[in-house]
């Protein structure tokens, strides 16, 4: 088997006596959609923080595309192709949708110590940004300030920003959280179009979304991965049912 794109080994993080991440082992293969599920308080947010580079693990290591990235911060991981969306929508509210995506393009277009040319007139940034907006279905909303977009559109915008960095891995933190049924279905349909083309880690509460999209699922309970497998295997797993699905 080829080396996984993301390889997490023995990852641990405690806050005082609380072990939020406990010896986590996780492999994400190139091209797969890998869901991470778990009840509230299972340590999903802490795990994501460590994967994205916002939190330093106490122990363990993270390899990404053959490189040990455990010590790298979030910007450095982003430059290596690690993109994310946030659980609570995180966009530049005062900037237009196009500005938001153009910034993501700019972040991956060499250094930004360029003081003279107006960034908003720079087709090298605008053209790719417009293309990504079209792709996520926000083409007509390019000039709207992000703050004035609907909630679902803001979430799409976040994914557009992630895609604009030409990522090798997309880390999606509850992409359908806070959405109505219809919005959420639209998002799931959109994510389905990315499936296979992008490697995705999907952290999600919504089981419909997870079972529709995921190739494999890892179940996190009390900071530990108690099972990893295909949706069918996870459904059938007695330990998972006891710890999690049964309670739903």
């Amino acid at each position: 088997m080829a080396e996984p794109l993301l390889e997490v080994r023995g990852l641990s993080k405690s806050f005082g006596a609380l072990s939020a991440t406990d010896q986590v082992e996780l492999d994400v293969l190139e091209g797969e959609t890998h869901a991470i599920i778990g009840p509230n308080g299972a340590g999903k947010t802490t795990l994501i923080g460590q994967l994205a580079g916002d939190l330093r693990p106490d122990a363990g290591r993270i390899r990404f595309a053959g490189e040990d990235i455990t010590a790298l911060d979030a910007p450095a991981r982003s430059r290596r192709g690690f993109a994310r969306s946030f659980q609570i929508t995180s966009v530049y509210r005062d900037f237009t949708a196009l500005d938001n995506v153009a910034l993501a393009v700019q972040a991956h277009a060499g250094h930004s110590f360029r003081f003279w040319r107006a960034a908003r007139g720079d087709e090298a940034l605008r053209a790719p940004a417009r293309a990504v907006l079209e792709e996520v279905g926000l083409g007509a909303r390019a000039e709207v300030p992000a703050a004035n977009l609907a909630h679902g559109e803001q979430r799409q915008l976040e994914i557009a920003m992630a895609l604009a960095t030409k990522p090798r891995l997309l880390l999606l933190d509850e992409p359908v959280a806070g959405m109505g049924a219809e919005e959420s279905q639209r998002m799931v349909r959109f994510l389905a179009t990315l499936k296979g083309r992008e490697t995705m880690i999907l952290v999600e509460h919504d089981m419909d979304a997870v079972f529709t999209l995921a190739d494999r699922i890892s179940v996190l309970v009390y900071g530990r991965i108690i099972a990893t497998g295909t949706p069918a295997e996870i459904r059938a797993n007695a330990e998972v049912r006891a710890a999690y699905l049964g309670e739903d």
């Binding site: 916002d54 994310r84 530049y92 900037f95 500005d99 993501a104 107006a118 908003r120 604009a164």
Partner: peptide
């Protein structure tokens, strides 16, 4: 001129939303 340049966009972005700015790859 400066604040509308690529450079200016970075410092404005970092002011507006620092976690987002770091997540898309800017230090």
């Amino acid at each position: 001129r400066l604040v509308d340049s690529r450079f200016g966009m970075v410092i404005r972005a970092a002011k507006s939303n620092e976690p987002r700015t770091r997540a898309i790859g800017f230090s």
